[in-house]
Computed example of a mutant assay.
Amino acid sequence: MTDQIFEGVYGTYTIDATDRREVLGYRLALTAVAIGQAGLLVQWRQLGADQLWPWMLLMAAGLGLALRWIHIYLVPLHRALQLFWLLGCLGGLALAIRSGPGAMMPALASQPLWILAIGPFFAALAGVGFKEFFCFRRPEAIGVTLLLPIALLGHLSGLLPGAITTALLALESGLLLVLCLRKFPMPAAADVGDKSVFAYLKGQAGPAEEAAL
């Protein structure tokens, strides 16, 4: 496929093969998160809460790669989401060490305070959902953004019984999968955004910020 030229706010820009690969990687990685979350919930319901860690690894890897390839104009926001992902993964590692990899979900169910440790991971995922809603106004994206914190904070505070928390997470998981599947027919340029804005912000950034762009 040949490079495509677009007119941006601050001049023309090109969508090239590298951009298309990054967009495909982002979409596949986010889909991996959706599949991992759905697989975890299905296995939990059908087979119990033991040995769910492979799905958690898939979610962690998928979100980490999605945040590597996502296009966000504001570098501090992008870095904040990556930091949340890292903190959440470290919290999950601490939980695995404390309870054992096979007993992570029972530990979360019985000791809701562990949600504070892994919560940043889901904050990062909710942030991706908000970005998708802000850019594309997809209703399923705002569902992902709102249902995750409602379910987790409801469980943490004890305001929501376990069955409702699980139902909300299942609904959010389904919405995330719908969001991912609807992205694949979209042109790559939609996820890349206006590259002239990135170039302008890079020109306005200080030396430290410019190195991060």
Results as ranks from 00 to 15, higher is better:
residue 193 G to P: 11
residue 197 V to N: 01
residue 47 L to W: 07
residue 133 F to T: 06
residue 161 P to T: 12
residue 121 F to G: 01
residue 68 R to F: 11
residue 206 G to V: 00
residue 51 Q to H: 12
residue 70 I to F: 02
residue 53 W to E: 08
residue 157 S to C: 10
residue 50 D to M: 12
residue 193 G to A: 12
residue 185 P to H: 13
residue 65 L to C: 12
residue 197 V to Y: 00
residue 40 L to E: 14
residue 132 E to N: 09
residue 113 L to I: 08
residue 97 I to P: 05
residue 147 L to K: 07
residue 192 V to N: 01
residue 23 V to E: 01
residue 114 W to Y: 11
residue 117 A to G: 10
residue 67 L to S: 08
residue 123 A to F: 03
residue 160 L to R: 05
residue 60 A to R: 06
residue 129 G to L: 04
residue 46 Q to F: 15
residue 76 P to R: 04
residue 98 R to K: 09
residue 32 A to K: 03
residue 170 A to S: 10
residue 108 L to G: 00
residue 118 I to E: 02
residue 76 P to G: 03
residue 135 C to N: 13
residue 132 E to C: 04
residue 48 G to K: 04
residue 47 L to T: 05
residue 19 D to T: 05
residue 88 G to T: 14
residue 118 I to V: 14
residue 21 R to C: 08
residue 137 R to Q: 14
residue 203 G to I: 08
residue 16 D to L: 07
residue 63 L to V: 05
residue 69 W to H: 13
residue 49 A to R: 12
residue 50 D to Q: 14
residue 152 L to G: 00
residue 79 R to T: 08
residue 136 F to Q: 10
residue 201 L to Y: 04
residue 124 A to P: 07
residue 163 A to T: 07
residue 189 A to D: 08
residue 194 D to I: 08
residue 32 A to N: 06
residue 82 Q to I: 06
residue 82 Q to P: 03
residue 149 P to H: 03
residue 167 A to D: 03
residue 108 L to N: 00
residue 6 F to S: 01
residue 17 A to G: 05
residue 17 A to R: 09
residue 46 Q to Y: 13
residue 2 T to H: 11
residue 38 A to S: 09
residue 206 G to P: 00
residue 14 T to K: 11
residue 152 L to W: 01
residue 55 W to A: 06
residue 193 G to V: 11
residue 57 L to N: 06
residue 102 G to A: 02
residue 197 V to K: 05
residue 84 F to P: 00
residue 57 L to P: 00
residue 190 A to N: 13
residue 1 M to D: 13
residue 106 P to Q: 10
residue 180 C to A: 15
residue 35 I to Q: 05
residue 182 R to W: 08
residue 65 L to R: 13
residue 205 A to G: 04
residue 148 L to M: 01
residue 190 A to M: 14
residue 14 T to N: 06
residue 183 K to V: 03
residue 180 C to K: 06
residue 211 A to W: 07
residue 178 V to E: 03
residue 52 L to G: 04
residue 12 T to R: 12
residue 202 K to W: 12
residue 153 L to P: 01
residue 68 R to T: 09
residue 115 I to P: 00
residue 116 L to R: 03
residue 131 K to H: 15
residue 185 P to G: 11
residue 23 V to T: 10
residue 134 F to T: 12
residue 211 A to D: 04
residue 78 H to A: 12
residue 130 F to I: 10
residue 131 K to R: 11
residue 41 L to Y: 02
residue 88 G to E: 12
residue 167 A to G: 10
residue 110 S to D: 11
residue 54 P to L: 00
residue 47 L to N: 09
residue 51 Q to T: 06
residue 97 I to M: 11
residue 193 G to E: 05
residue 188 A to W: 01
residue 134 F to K: 07
residue 63 L to M: 06
residue 76 P to T: 02
residue 199 A to S: 15
residue 206 G to N: 03
residue 155 H to G: 13
residue 114 W to A: 04
residue 15 I to D: 04
residue 158 G to L: 10
residue 113 L to G: 09
residue 202 K to A: 15
residue 37 Q to D: 04
residue 207 P to F: 15
residue 40 L to P: 09
residue 189 A to W: 10
residue 74 L to E: 15
residue 15 I to M: 07
residue 4 Q to W: 02
residue 132 E to A: 13
residue 100 G to F: 07
residue 98 R to T: 11
residue 92 G to N: 09
residue 68 R to Q: 09
residue 88 G to I: 07
